[in-house]
């Protein structure tokens, strides 16, 4: 097996309504050096590569489904990106998320730059903008995982101060770095929600440095349900200039 980048037909296949996508072995279950090549319609939406890091145990759910890969397919629609977080204390509740529109291979155009039209760029970023909501009460059903759920009564996550990449385990550091580079921000619970367990630093004052810890796996005294709703499409607010 030659471990080379998968070749694309863009230099031979004429332009059409279809687009070719390449999914490499670090993105999908294939095996070292493998790649999946697929064709799909442009109107189906677009895909984004997700970078995330949590200091605690987490489960990511997009529109009610756990994504099988870090390449997420988005239709032009409203979406809900949700987390279930478990930690031994609030001082370990800290996560960063950044999803960036993945490379779009446009047959033919890729090789002939005069025809090349850059694809619109979308990003989904964890930010203290009031749009990342959480609750400490288990939702009654799965409606919260889907777009359109009323989370107006939920609390709002805030920026987690003082997090350094050095506190992130080496295995996950590149994910955290990439998420931060793209503009993501570590979020955590606010200092004044009064729910912090007494075993941690004073409520909201995360002077205990965030650090990946095996204790996060041993007990889960803090459980959070987090959701972020956003819209993709030509008029979406997330579309970058």
């Amino acid at each position: 097996m030659e471990l080379v980048r998968f070749d694309l037909p863009q230099d031979t296949k004429p332009p059409s309504d279809l687009m070719a996508e390449l999914h490499e072995s670090h993105q999908v279950p294939i095996g070292c050096g493998g790649a999946v090549f697929r064709w799909r319609r442009r109107s189906d939406g677009f895909r984004m590569t997700l970078y995330q890091h949590c200091f605690c145990r987490s489960r990511l759910i997009l529109d009610g489904v756990e994504p099988p890969t870090t390449l997420l397919m988005f239709s032009f629609d409203r979406h809900a990106l949700c987390f279930e977080l478990e930690a031994s204390s609030d001082s370990l509740v800290g996560f960063v998320v950044a999803a960036e529109e993945a490379d779009v291979v446009r047959p033919h155009n890729w090789m002939f730059l005069e025809d090349f039209v850059p694809p619109p760029t979308y990003r989904v970023l964890s930010k203290p903008d009031g749009k990342w909501k959480f609750t400490r009460t288990r939702p009654a059903n799965d409606d919260w995982l889907r777009p359109g759920f009323d989370d107006s009564q939920w609390d709002t996550l805030v920026a987690a101060p003082g997090i350094e990449l050095g506190s992130v385990g080496r295995q996950h550091r590149w994910l955290a770095r990439r998420a931060l580079e793209l503009g993501g921000c570590y979020l955590t619970t606010p200092p004044d929600d009064g729910s912090h367990p007494p075993t941690t630093a004073p409520p909201g004052q995360h002077d205990t440095p965030f650090r990946e810890s095996p204790s996060a796996d041993r007990s889960a005294e803090v459980r959070l349900w987090v959701r972020h709703e956003f819209v993709t499409g030509p008029e979406a607010e997330l579309k970058l200039p």
Binding site: D17, L18, V36, F37, R38, W39, R40, R41, D44
Partner: peptide, 8 residues
């Protein structure tokens, strides 16, 4: 293939 849309 199994990964492709109906057009392909």
């Amino acid at each position: 293939s199994w990964a492709d849309s109906a057009d392909a």
